[in-house]
């Protein structure tokens, strides 16, 4: 059900049709994006500087350390280590950005600044807020992914026309993690719980085949790694930039879509419960 402020002023998004968040309209959700854009217009340096971290990692681990590694075997083909690591860094930076935006930023607005309390006394609904904040995280992530992909192209690290799908794939990764991050944030009582977020992110960043192929692990550990969402994100982007695309891509996409939809559903409901009591 879509409640609109004025007849015909709100349109149902595809997202809203799949996950019916009560009273969400795309037009109102876009106002959340407008608000965030207004905030960051002044501090665009922060947004720009966010690009450099994955870029530095690419130069250090990908190129500096990559020279010591040489090539790695992937699906029976030998590829340069730099070309192996680069897509993984893109995927994990999409995860990092989405998680940061949907946890620290949202927690601050939810618990301290009371930003949402003010917004909800207008026609905006909790669903609008949730959808708007996630959309903002996706836009920001898209900017990073685009610049990183450009760097990869310039360094000759893209080996397949499939790479045109990297950007939508990165948005999907951002969506999956932002939705889950936001849902998790609504359950957090205090700042100390972010230690827990770190505890989820860091092991994934280090172990989800970011820096070396799955085959390096003993088979028992492989089963664990395959369950993590970042594994699917990394493998999805890597198969697109290397051109080693096969049926498993569908599994990776499915995993991320389901994760995002569940997260969004939980986040919308929890926000409603927290803010409208």
């Amino acid at each position: 059900m879509t409640t609109t402020l004025r007849p015909g002023s709100g349109s149902e998004t595809l997202l809203a049709r799949i996950v019916p968040l009560p009273g969400t309209s795309a037009r109102r959700a876009s106002l959340m994006v407008e608000r965030n854009a207004l905030v960051y217009r002044r501090s665009w340096v922060i947004i720009v500087s966010g690009f450099f971290e994955p870029f530095f990692y690419l130069l250090s681990i990908g190129i500096g350390l990559g020279a010591l590694v040489g090539t790695v075997s992937l699906d029976g083909r030998m590829i340069e280590y730099t070309a192996f690591v680069a897509p993984a860094l893109l995927a994990s930076s999409a995860m990092n950005g989405a998680v940061y935006d949907s946890t620290f930023n949202i927690f601050f607005k939810l618990k301290y600044a009371k930003t949402y309390d003010a917004i909800l006394s207008t026609p905006m609904s909790p669903g609008d807020v949730a959808a708007g904040e996630i959309t903002w995280a996706l836009i920001r992530g898209l900017i990073y992914s685009t610049t990183f992909l450009a760097v990869m192209l310039a360094l000759g690290l893209v080996g397949s026309p499939w790479a045109v799908l990297v950007l939508p794939a990165a948005v999907l990764i951002g969506f999956g993690f932002a939705a889950v991050g936001m849902a998790a944030t609504t359950y957090m009582p205090g700042w100390q719980d972010f230690e827990f977020v770190q505890l989820c992110i860091l092991p994934m960043f280090l172990f989800a085949t970011t820096f070396y192929p799955l085959a390096t692990y003993p088979s028992a550990l492989q089963a664990v790694v395959v369950c993590t969402p970042l594994y699917h994100a990394v493998e999805l982007i890597r198969s697109l930039t290397t051109g080693l695309v096969d049926g498993t891509v569908v599994i990776h996409i499915g995993y991320l879509v389901v994760m995002g939809l569940i997260g969004l559903r939980v986040a919308g409901r929890r926000l409603e419960k927290l803010l409208l009591t």
């Binding site: 590694v69 280090l206 820096f211 070396y212 390096t216």
Partner: peptide, 18 residues
């Protein structure tokens, strides 16, 4: 523990092979 396991041992395997 995490860094040494991932980078030292995991990635280390690739570097040592190199």
């Amino acid at each position: 523990v995490l860094f040494l396991a991932a980078m030292g041992i995991g990635l280390g395997t690739l570097v040592d092979d190199g």
